[in-house]
Design a protein around this nucleic acid. Structure first.
Lengths: 335, 335
DNA sequence: TTGAAAGCGCTACCAT
DNA sequence: ATGGTAGCGCTTTCAA
């Protein structure tokens, strides 16, 4: 049986409250000699405070909940790493829950975590609503990461998707491309919409026409990317560059391009988004927009802990800058 | 403020202990009418038991700790997913800690998790010792996954590395290769040793000579794989097939092979290990030994929960079977 | 079938 | 500077 605070108090010949004072209130009045005796007893008994008992009393668990669609996706696992790094610096740990992108699981998980009395939630998931309204209503601390809630209020840490899309298009235009297509993500998501918007704005900036002929809406995965590329070739066979809304889509596009007997970047320049580790290993290595994922996770946890601690926030949201990783899938326009 | 069991009891006009009985001991004697009244009160107040208070009383947190070197490595994140799936089925959640392969962080983390009173630990990390001895001494529940402890006692869930290596070599031999090299992992790890042993045994099975000329010891990463391949080419330029101890090593080998102006699989057949998602995207897609990672994580959590619940275990360890995913990096011997 | 009460280990308030 | 004590919310034993 592990030693309790009472054991320490008995051994040191003091009251448990004194032990607690020594251990917790660094700046509080305790005679040096008493402190010594107590620390010695702690050492002898190898005493570790019981976090559960402390939590019950203080009403803080020093535990964060993080809800993620798919931890095996490096995108999210790097977010988690960032969050964990910040949390651990402040003495917090994180309960991680994977939703497999299922809304029911997501809501159940949020409830589960709250019942466990986690001090706050980091939400990296797509759709939250019912559970969320309760949360904001009751003033429960939570922070969105990689997603900026539209309807619901809430703090967030995101990357600038409009800027990211512009980086991609600027690059392609600089290489001489004018017929640039976009395979967008789902347009019911803020991410999908923002990247499309960035694409549109960048074309406009460069005096290039925007046309829905050159846009195909896709899901955020490889297979959907493949089929969307086929559809694009049907609609607009003359494009010379494609900006894909994320890397898996871009990988699907690659397959479709090769099937058509075309070369990358010889015939088609291709840009992805997120810069997952895998894309630098592709042939050719993919040019992609990199998000500061670790930093996003870090800042989200940091922000959440500030909210929990009642520290004032300078801002409700943090928007981080993406940057373009240029690789071999993009090249100067032929001719 | 959230409702407590006392609020429910008051509303239902009963004692808190009766509420507790209704909520927890499904099979216990409670008059149907009372139960109804209580459930109604629970509903009205939207009562959720406070897990912290319950944990303090029952001495179980229904929380598992999982220690992982690097969650952004898909190898580990899939292990985690499996563990989380099993845990969540049994009403457990998992606190995940990332160690970045740093021993100090690892030990601190284990201590942290124990102080939090997690009911048990799943250890996917490389080196644990000091902290571990305490754990086994005090009968604290823990399970190793993907690693079978040598010196320390302990339950484990691993894949059969000797078998996996044999699968790789059998395949290469079947393709007509006889000069098969092995770039091994670190030989101070059980994983590295076991794969080397499988390589040696398989050669013997096929009546092929084993020689240290054809073995280079490497670290488990891409760069080390690259340098090890260079060393191999120096020692044994005539090899026609290479079995790499894991996928990152194999990727490093690829780079070295291409630099030498050789083709895969034309000149050199190459087999990796772990079958990370990325390897099917390489050019050529890599033949690799696949481990049932999700299942390993699942079984590890399941085993741990059994230990926690005091259920008897049929066995101290579970060894799962790998299988070979044949792709285009291996081909029949020329000539 | 239900109630009363103790107590898990800790902190924080109030005394002294 | 330190001790005493109440109580966080729950479960569980004992009694009725």
């Amino acid at each position: 049986m592990a030693a309790t605070i009472k054991d320490v108090a008995d051994l040191a010949g003091v009251n448990p409250s004194t032990v607690s004072r020594v251990l917790n209130n660094a700046g509080l009045a305790v005679k040096e000699e008493t402190r010594q005796r107590i620390m010695e007893a702690v050492r002898i008994l190898n005493y570790k405070p019981n976090a559960v008992a402390r939590s019950l009393r203080t009403r803080f668990t020093q535990l964060l909940g993080m809800v993620i669609p798919d931890i095996s996706n490096p995108f999210f696992s790097i977010l988690f790493k960032g969050a964990e790094a910040a949390a651990s610096e402040k003495g917090f740990n994180i309960i991680l829950g994977n939703t497999d992108d299922q809304k029911a699981r997501e809501e159940a998980l949020i409830q589960e975590l709250r019942d466990r009395q986690v001090d706050g939630l980091i939400l990296a998931t797509a759709q939250v609503d019912g559970a969320l309204e309760n949360m904001s209503l009751e003033g429960y601390p939570y922070v969105f990461v990689n997603r900026r809630p539209r309807e619901t209020a809430g703090r967030y840490v995101v990357a600038d998707n409009i800027k990211g899309a512009k980086l991609a298009i600027d690059h392609l235009v600089a290489l001489g491309h004018t017929r640039i297509a976009h395979i967008s993500g789902p347009l019911y998501t803020d991410v999908g919409l923002a990247r499309l918007e960035g694409y549109r704005l960048a074309l406009k900036d460069h005096g290039l026409p925007f046309s829905f002929e050159n846009v195909v809406e896709s899901e955020h995965n490889e297979e959907a990317g493949y089929w969307s590329a086929l559809e694009l070739f049907r609609k607009s066979p003359e494009v010379t560059a494609i900006f894909a809304a994320n890397d898996p889509i871009a990988i699907g596009v690659m397959t479709a391009v090769y099937e058509r007997g075309l070369e990358i970047p010889g015939d088609i320049s291709l840009v992805g988004y997120n810069d997952l580790p895998v894309v630098s290993k592709l042939r050719p290595p993919l040019t992609s927009v990199r998000l500061p994922l670790f930093e996003m996770g870090y800042k989200a946890a940091e922000m959440l802990i500030k909210i929990i601690s009642g520290e004032p926030l300078e801002q409700d949201g943090i928007v981080l800058e993406p940057r373009l990783m240029v690789r071999e899938s993009t090249a100067r326009m032929k001719g």
